[in-house]
Design a protein around this nucleic acid. Sequence first.
RNA 1: GCACCUGUGGCGGAAUUGGCAGACGCGCCGGACUUAGGAUCCGGUGUCUUUGACGUGAAGGUUCAAGUCCUUUCAGGUGCACCA
Length: 803
Amino acid sequence: MENYNFKVIEKKWQDKWEEAGAFHAETNSKKPKYFTMIEFPYPSGAGLHVGHPRSYTALDIIARKRRMEGYNVLYPIGWDAFGLPTENFAIKNKVHPKIITEKNIANFTRQLKMLGFSFDWSREVNTTDPAYYKWTQWIFMQLFKHGLAYKQEMPINWCTSCKVGLSNEEVVNGVCERCGGEVVQRRKSQWMLKITEYAQRLIDDLDDVDYLEKIKIQQKNWIGRSEGAEVKFKLSTGDEMVVYTTRADTLFGATYTVMSPEHPLIEKMKDAITNYDEVEAYKAEAAKKSEFERTELAKEKTGVKLEGIYAVNPANGEKLPVFISDYVLVTYGTGAIMAVPAHDSRDWDFAKKFNLPIIEVVAGGEDVQKEAYTDVYKGKMVNSGFLTGMTVKEAIPAMIDWLEKEGLGKRKVNYKLRDWVFSRQRYWGEPIPLVHCDKCGWVAIPESELPLELPELDVFEPGENGESPLAKAYDWINTTCPCCGGPAQRETDTMPQWAGSSWYFLRYTDPHNNDVLASKEALEYWTPVDWYNGGMEHTTLHLLYSRFWHKFLYDIGVVPTKEPYMKRTSHGMILGENNEKMSKSRGNVVNPDEVVDEFGADAFRTYEMFIGAFDQSTPWSQQGLKGCYKFLERVWNLQSIVTDEEGYSKDLEKAVHKTIKKVGEDFERMKFNTAIAAMMSLVNEFTKKGSVTKGEYMTLITLLNPVAPHITEELWEKYGGEGLLSLHPWLTYDEAKTVDDEIEIVVQINGKIRDKILVPADIDKAGLEELALKNDKIKDAADGKTVVKVIAIPGRLVNVVIK
RNA sequence: GCACCUGUGGCGGAAUUGGCAGACGCGCCGGACUUAGGAUCCGGUGUCUUUGACGUGAAGGUUCAAGUCCUUUCAGGUGCACCA
């Protein structure tokens, strides 16, 4: 028997799989379909991170098992290749991002192929390919035509020294990541997508999908539905200020009101405000602050009182001061609040700082002068007119009813979710397929002109005034209006990286179609995705955006299902050996190339699955990796004790059936670590016995195949297995042979273990009790005491309670 | 601050409905083989004051029985940032 030579074996089987087209998915095959998918990677210059294969191996195991179970499996791969790092590299090195992207993709492809994933490479997609982004643009165009895309002034991060707009990611500690210059907020007209119109459906339809509970919770928290009321406050100027509140019950406790600095009423009331200079200064200060500073300074509340103005509490007619403060956000609710310091901790902080009265209207807490009492479950209303004596739960609807009756307010549902800022002033993204005509406004280009390709440029830097690099492509910009034929200019902003990843799963079903984004037939057959795995960091934005686009496509009849993904799971991070996040600066990065070179792909895959609980983050261990390599070597070396017998031997039969059951079930539950542990145990049993039948060995190899596909194909071939093991049927087990005839039962006295007895597996409660009471140790212990109770749990234990 | 997650040997981690805590692997200790061992094989390995007792971050509670359920609390991680 030659030594385990993974280098030869792995190359050999990767070639064979490719030759045989073993992992090609066939649209409309007679077999049942199974569509499983991992988040397609961003092909960074750093190459594959050891975190990528954790997710890819896990679903590769599922894909391979499904194939063996007779499914027609689609397990695709592609590239989410637009994005900032590539563009910044391009700017710095004066190379076209396309060239960098090609190079990075080639490297990623090599690395993924070396790991033996069963991807259908014939369906590879690339978001930067015009044949792909033609359809990203097409979807945007439909959104535009259905009124879901609009332009609005939005603040952007502006580096005062580079004179460019920055993404949040590029703003580090309030300064520009590249030059360290000051970052301020600047307003710019941006394309927005109305995701808020889908807020309720994005919550409701979570009931129909199988996501990890924590992912559903995160989606719901992000959308942030709240039920409350809008209440009208009359101002001394005669104007009306509408506030939003979820605690209408506390209206009698309002002691002041606050508007956000950007609130439009402020300018309207300019003449009535006696300290307008001070107000202007505060507004300017707030506008100058970057988002970072505004939130960082949150500890200390700031604000300015609008002198010469007051608001009237609609509940009791009291005159309340009006403030502006940046703790009130113009983007949420109505941009104005009523402040109830006794029962809201932010209002409380503000009231203390500005010496405002704190009036208790919900009793049940400690002294409200010392701390706000925010509990809504226990308290009773006090000092609140007709609400006094009610619970908070009763008082909220009672107050809203009263407000509605009096015409002073109304019920209102609010969402934290904001519309999606869809413009980027960048080169490396999909061009937005619209033109602006002085006569016709914003007009979509004809569909026949798609894809609208990126113009060739030599310089990829954003412009001095924050405009997109595309603004420099004069020939490209100037065009004619598709509507009136007059002169028009193209939109120079590009789409965000999220765009291409919001619908890529659809393209996998029919990646080469040039007439539609995917044929009806392919979509009907393949969608929805049956199982989607990815990182926890994408469970809000990416997942929400793609669900939104999918629902829109469903509404316009392009896709047949309401939801894109039936099942969504997430994997934990792999940390460095020092238990910290892997990063170049920490010097704890593990390079997959080196691991595979030294131990092979199979050992790498096995270790990544054995490393710990799949959904938990866990540190890398070179020793642990070695242990998995040794396990594969032991499997290989078992060859020296394999006999010619086909079936299972008497003494190992049970162990084999149990292992088949456990491994299959554990794979489905993503308990890969315990599945591998079970296979290790089986190998230990083989070794202990000193011989193993060919039947037993082939079973082990089949179970191990989804995890370590190369070594197992090789052994399968050596022992005369038919065809490719990867396409061989998965194993069945005999339930009867997974249970023992005789089991060990624990005998306890007062909950402490005193003995263990061997009993027939099917013994009943009475039989167990009898056996336990006959037990010598129990008799000794019970001597002179009374047996109070005997608890017998068949299959588990007997507990004798004595006194 | 809010939300979610996690605390179990020297380490990574096991442990259906509450029912033998520590599976499996690493490391360590001992032995065999060996010119050699960072190879391989065999045995051992939670702690202690070892006829037994104690042990799952801490403190209470429920129960015949708690890693698992309840209450309080401490520590770490992740996400979001004043959401009225």
